[in-house]
Simulated assay, not measured.
Amino acid sequence: MGIKKQLGMGVLSAALGLTLIGGGTYAYFSDSETTNNTFAAGEIDLAVEPTKVIDVDNIQPGDSMTRDFELQNNGSLAIDKVLLETDYSVTDAEGDNTEDFGSQIEVEFLYNADKLDEVIYKTTLAELKNMEPEAVNEHVFDPMLEDGLEPGSLDDLVVKFTFVNSGEDQNQFQGDALNLEWTFNAQQAADEGENGNEDENNNN
């Protein structure tokens, strides 16, 4: 191989080497990490035991029936409010009602079993049906639950139903039946989300 060819290859090799070295000046070290994050929503789970509060027949004016049941917080978040919606239907046996049978049924919400003489709120089924749930909470559940229901806790609700004896002719209600439906809606404590956000901000 001639000296010129050798020199030519040497220059080519040198040029190639410079190219590799030059390319290396643009390289850099790097590293990466991946985090796995989860957002799990808490649960509001209000249970009522028993689900059938009252089932009686052959009642007459003046009769009273006391029933108690539990409000249970089976969820992971505190319950601040319980909103009660009342609905009922009346089967008029004789078809001669001029008044609502629900107006004849008085409802007394009482404190728990060892304080049955302390009335929280008294109304009739007819009035209760027309009340806003927020108003029911204010009159009944706010005084009873006080600080709400914490997860895993329960409270007793005692209710006294009375077929009011008006002292007047109530024959129109003979044989009538009233089917009562109560719907309890639970709402979480207002500061549950705020506390969570504050914790997040403090950790950042």
Rank of each mutant, 00 (worst) to 15 (best):
K5D: 08
Q6Y: 08
G10K: 04
L12Y: 06
G23Q: 12
T25Q: 12
Y28N: 14
S30A: 13
T35E: 12
D45I: 09
L46R: 02
A47E: 12
A47R: 12
K52Q: 09
D55W: 06
V56F: 08
S64A: 05
L71V: 00
Q72K: 14
N74V: 05
G75Y: 04
A78G: 15
V82W: 04
S89E: 07
A93K: 08
E99V: 06
D100K: 00
S103H: 07
Q104T: 13
F109A: 04
F109K: 00
F109M: 05
Y111M: 11
K115D: 15
L116E: 15
D117P: 14
D117G: 13
D117K: 11
E118V: 05
Y121N: 06
T123N: 08
A126W: 05
A126V: 06
E127M: 04
L128E: 02
K129W: 00
N130K: 06
E132V: 10
E134D: 15
V136F: 03
E138H: 05
V140D: 00
V140W: 00
D142S: 14
P143W: 02
L145Y: 00
L145F: 06
L145N: 03
D147W: 07
L149D: 01
E150M: 15
P151M: 11
S153I: 07
D155M: 09
V164C: 06
S166N: 11
E168I: 11
F173N: 04
L180E: 07
E181K: 15
T183N: 10
F184G: 02
A186V: 09
Q188W: 10
A189Q: 13
A189Y: 06
G193Q: 10
G196E: 06
E198K: 11
N201T: 13
N202I: 09
N203A: 15
